[in-house]
Design a protein around this nucleic acid. Structure first.
Lengths: 175, 175
DNA sequence: GCGCATGTAAAATGATCGTTTTACACTTCA
DNA sequence: TGAAGTGTAAAACGATCATTTTACATGCGC
């Protein structure tokens, strides 16, 4: 496997499991099996590594979440939570741990959330045949809620979110 | 003001603004205007301080959220987000930053979430005249979602969550 | 075969971490 | 009067932080 890929992948796991500040560079180099010199050649700094991890995660996330129905969207979230482990939104966590002071990290978060919103917007059109910004925001609320509640109640909460979103879409379709 | 109160209050602000690990003891002592010796006499350790902050926040939060209707519940969340600043759930953040490895912190989080759930349970009974676990979980999903979405979309999202919860309760009442 | 990129190992950088300790000042109450 | 309690200031603790540097090994194209 490519060095950069291996580095970013192990860093993602360590950041997710232990937090960003609590994960030192030595644990990252040891985990990836590379020297610190190589790490800095590839990502420049720890913040650069965090940003790289987020951007890579964003790509993988949206590949998995590229669905056209509410049912499939929350099915994808359920699968994601099951395989990646549910510890809340890593993008929000990165921003919170850095106080929102690192531009490359804050921008990665903003991009990620905007893409999620766009995707839900497309799903709403597919489900009810027209745009409905309030419904989009409500589904995003349920999605965000499920992401974080799964951290302490388990992934069964994703199913509850899915049903609620479905019911609200049904009501919007009928009106 | 009491020393301990002042310490916990300034620590809460610093933790919320900059994160737990990123806030050093010197910034905490300087912020509270006390010596490090006094800090350790009062809370024992940094983790002890975090736990104390969370438990105090839990008390204040539930005092503010002690409402009997969906409308008032989300109104309280809106006020909370406006005055305390919206940076996601501080209880979840504390657990995430410590990897869930500190019992006193993990327990404070669990207690906080259980109390929130109980409160929503009472509201549901008041609103539709009977228990409905699915509705309780859905409202908690919207509450949790609003808490985190407010961090990057502003507090207007709380209003969207309130309306969705209201509509779902109306539907449950009618069925 | 030479130069160059790319890697490693390991030490050094200076700063900052959480925590403890030493030494001293003030109040309170018996 | 004096001991106990509660506070401060400041230094020291060893550990760990992110980052840079020094010295050396490898493989590849010209």
């Amino acid at each position: 496997m490519d060095i950069r890929t291996r580095l970013i992948s192990t860093a993602e796991q360590l950041f997710d499991r232990h937090g960003f500040n609590a994960t030192g560079m030595d644990r990252l180099t040891a985990g990836a099996g590379i020297s610190s010199r190589t790490l800095y050649k590839h990502v420049g700094s720890k913040n650069g590594l965090i940003a790289a991890v987020l951007n890579e995660r964003d790509r993988r996330f949206h590949r998995q979440v590229e669905k056209d129905s509410i049912d499939a969207l929350f099915g994808a979230l359920e699968a994601w939570s099951a395989q990646e482990s549910a510890r809340g939104c890593l993008f929000l966590r990165a921003c919170q741990e850095t106080g929102g002071d690192v531009p490359e990290i804050a921008e990665a978060m903003a991009r990620h959330k905007q893409r999620l919103r766009d995707r839900i917007g497309q799903i709403v059109v597919a489900e009810i045949g027209r745009r409905d910004d309030e419904l989009v925001e409500t589904i995003q609320l349920l999605f965000e809620g499920a992401t974080h509640m799964a951290a302490y109640r388990g992934i069964t909460t994703v199913d509850v979110a899915r049903r609620a979103a479905q019911r609200l879409a049904d009501a919007a379709r009928a009106s």
